[in-house]
Computed example of a mutant assay.
Amino acid sequence: MTEPILKDPRELYHPEKFKKQDQDTPALQTEMSPNPDCGEESYVGHHKLENRRVLITGGDSGIGRAAAIAYAREGADIALQFFPGEEKDAREVAKYIKEANRKVILLPYDLRDEEAPAKMVEQTVKELGGLDTLVLNAAQQISQPGIGKIPIQQVKDTFMVNIISMFSLVQAAEPHLPAGGAIITTTSVQAFNPSSHLTDYAATKAAIANFTVNLARQFAEKGIRVNGVAPGPIWTPLQLDQGQPQDAIPEFGQNSLLGRAGQPAELAPIYVFLASNDASFVTAQIYGITGGEAINL
């Protein structure tokens, strides 16, 4: 009898502690140790997103990078937004997309710019010939020891990047999105169990969860599904760019039920599922990929 292929989730990827490290803004995935696994070598497509036209924000690294690689291998063309200065990571993702024989356009836009969302959508529609799927993933996360230490400009920037840009992107994209299209947001376990050193970030993630469910109700009559993903501790450049207290990096993710941080590659299948026709009866949902921590809306 053939034995089942079983893998102990506690021992996958990088179960050990991380070395102490940080980076200046913008942090690059290519300079992390260990390098996050975004499915570059492991993700295999099954034609679930043939000829989709997808705009992904924050697609140069981490979760957005994993989604971009998976989407391309599933047959989608990709418009990849990234923060200016992250070109090195973005070009690397573009290489993987081209190797999958899919089209990619790079969108170096700062989402703090009010005009950026409309420009991004316009360029995507023009160069990809349309737009049917949005993956709203970009985020700013800056750790501060308490609310009294958070500059108000940081609060404004965090809200602008994390949630206000989502409103603008959806408004710009709505006229182009067809029935059967999908919107996937990235919220966080922080929306449900916030850390005291991430007050502004957690507040935006709670807003994204609410936004997702509200938007699903509005778009259902158009035949467009809207869902969100709530990651837990995932090893991405966001953590090294002031996203965690520096002394916390070695222990990052070690207190999850599975005893380790997650890798972006472990989220890619859920982003694919939520965009695909397999999720035809799924909308207004938040999927937790947290290593065991509960989420509750």
Score class of each variant (00 low, 15 high):
25 T>K: 02
26 P>H: 08
27 A>T: 07
27 A>C: 05
28 L>V: 13
28 L>T: 02
28 L>E: 10
29 Q>H: 10
29 Q>A: 15
30 T>F: 10
30 T>Y: 03
31 E>H: 13
31 E>Q: 15
32 M>S: 11
32 M>Y: 09
33 S>H: 10
33 S>M: 06
33 S>D: 15
34 P>D: 13
34 P>S: 05
34 P>N: 13
36 P>C: 10
37 D>K: 09
38 C>I: 05
38 C>Y: 06
39 G>S: 09
39 G>E: 04
39 G>H: 05
41 E>N: 15
41 E>K: 15
41 E>S: 15
43 Y>V: 12
43 Y>E: 05
43 Y>F: 11
44 V>Y: 00
44 V>A: 13
44 V>S: 06
45 G>P: 08
45 G>K: 01
45 G>S: 00
45 G>D: 00
46 H>A: 14
46 H>M: 14
46 H>F: 12
47 H>Y: 06
48 K>P: 02
48 K>Y: 05
48 K>A: 11
48 K>R: 15
49 L>G: 11
49 L>S: 11
50 E>V: 15
51 N>G: 02
52 R>D: 05
54 V>S: 04
54 V>Y: 05
55 L>D: 10
56 I>G: 01
56 I>L: 11
57 T>H: 04
58 G>N: 05
58 G>L: 06
58 G>S: 04
59 G>P: 02
60 D>H: 05
62 G>A: 06
63 I>R: 04
64 G>T: 10
65 R>L: 11
65 R>P: 08
66 A>K: 07
67 A>N: 00
67 A>E: 00
67 A>C: 07
68 A>K: 11
69 I>N: 04
69 I>K: 00
70 A>S: 13
70 A>Y: 02
70 A>D: 01
72 A>L: 03
74 E>Y: 00
74 E>K: 06
74 E>V: 03
75 G>Y: 12
75 G>P: 07
75 G>N: 11
75 G>R: 06
76 A>N: 12
77 D>C: 11
78 I>Q: 15
78 I>S: 12
78 I>W: 15
80 L>E: 07
80 L>K: 02
80 L>C: 03
80 L>A: 06
81 Q>I: 08
81 Q>Y: 06
82 F>W: 01
83 F>T: 10
83 F>W: 11
84 P>F: 10
84 P>A: 09
84 P>L: 09
85 G>L: 03
85 G>H: 02
85 G>Q: 09
86 E>V: 00
86 E>S: 01
87 E>Y: 04
88 K>V: 09
88 K>L: 00
89 D>P: 03
89 D>E: 08
90 A>K: 01
90 A>R: 02
90 A>N: 04
91 R>S: 03
91 R>V: 14
92 E>I: 12
92 E>F: 14
93 V>N: 01
93 V>H: 01
94 A>M: 10
94 A>C: 14
94 A>Q: 09
95 K>W: 09
96 Y>L: 13
97 I>P: 02
98 K>Y: 02
98 K>S: 13
98 K>I: 13
98 K>N: 11
99 E>P: 03
99 E>L: 03
99 E>W: 00
100 A>P: 07
100 A>V: 14
101 N>L: 09
